[in-house]
Write a protein that binds this DNA or RNA. Structure first.
Lengths: 213, 213
DNA sequence: TGTTAAGCGGAGGGAGCCTCCGTATCTTCA
DNA sequence: TGAAGATACGGAGGCTCCCTCCGCTTAACA
């Protein structure tokens, strides 16, 4: 520490490999079995000893966190790619949709992430930052192109997205969220606005999603 | 089952009492220690044997669920009370704020609920229904009084609320959510408006033209 | 007050958590 | 290339918590 080793050893190849294996295994096992899945099962699937798993990830949360960071990375990269898409609005929409699919394929994992978020606000901050930037770049492009209104922040959008996905596992949640996303994106478009707002006693203007109570 | 016992015994007083005690203890223990808190600790705090706990709540999820149902009940009752408040908009705002506080005092518990939601879509449906009705009654009153727009469904509102709270445990989350709630409520008001909106890009949000196809 | 169904507590077998350390493998340097 | 030393590996084992099972206790009913 004080003795700054200017000559650090190259990390061992097997250590790097094992770490990667554990992460991959963890993703699968948690997705299938939820956040309480046995760590011994993870180690087994990764083909390593339980001790190895614990050396790399001293606590269950550390493991969750590492898996999660990877996911965020991926979404971030996806945004990077979409930046080159022709239609900026469509690009944003696609990214949002990818997010939903992402959640959908990870039943158990998302519960694990909820747990992780609770205990690591540093992680929360990191991923918020990362995802906000991802959304932001897509959003800005659409705004700059004059195709979207400019008064919505990436944070707001992200929060809305996450919030909508949060309620998943209800019967038709996924299609519902996708629908809402479309509405959302439509709402963000530059348009001759001023949708007719229904007067209190009036009948519903929207045919869809008639709330019954 | 088929043999309908027309002569059911009154439930034993101690059983009722113990059930209640366990629920109360669980609320405290989970709130403090998160969803993985020891069930034995719950039993201990409740002053009952572990066997008793398991008889009433065969699985950890059953216990979560029962605790959660209570909470929903309480929020529902709160809405009932607020119906008598003078200002309908304020009543709605208060209810929303109570929700936030609710979440705030239950760090660990909310993680538990996330888990429960995952595994019991019946519960999710029930609570959505219950809370939707709670919001709905408050919302309707405000709309009927001509103080709020009528094109927002209680479901939408609930989803937004839950979504916003979902991100909690970030540093200033609570005040942030409260702020956003106020904005939200303001947005719901019947007003003569059209506030000037502008954010990032220097361009003024041009309200006109550009009929998007 | 006696009968009996219902409820109670906690012992105990099992599963998973996590630590610890002897062994195996990799990197470095001569 | 081979030896030395650092680093990582595996899994036995101690421990905690889970959950079932059953003999004892108690409340409801007649």
């Amino acid at each position: 520490m004080d003795d700054h080793a200017d000559h650090t050893r190259k990390p061992r190849a097997d250590a790097v490999r094992n770490r990667e294996r554990v992460l991959e295994a963890a993703k699968v096992v948690f997705s299938a079995g939820g956040p309480e899945a046995s760590l011994e099962a993870v180690a087994k699937r990764a083909g390593v000893g339980i001790g190895t798993l614990y050396r790399h990830f001293p606590t269950r949360e550390d493991l969750f966190e590492a898996v999660y960071r990877r996911e965020v990375e991926q979404l971030s990269e996806l945004a990077e790619q979409l930046k080159n898409a022709r239609d900026p609005v469509d690009a944003l929409r696609r990214w949002l949709r990818s997010n939903v699919e992402f959640v959908a394929t990870k039943k158990g994992m998302s519960a694990a992430l909820a747990l992780t978020f609770q205990s690591s606000s540093e992680l929360a901050a990191y991923s918020m930052d990362r995802l906000t930037k991802a959304i932001g770049s897509l959003l800005d492009r659409a705004v700059a192109a004059g195709q979207m209104r400019g008064d919505i922040s990436p944070e707001d959008l992200l929060r809305a997205l996450v919030g909508m996905c949060y309620m998943h596992d209800q019967p038709g949640w996924q299609s519902s969220v996708l629908r809402m996303l479309d509405v959302f994106v439509d709402g963000l478009r530059m348009q001759p606005v001023m949708k007719a707002r229904v007067r209190s006693t009036g009948k519903p203007a929207k045919p869809a999603a008639k709330p019954k109570r």
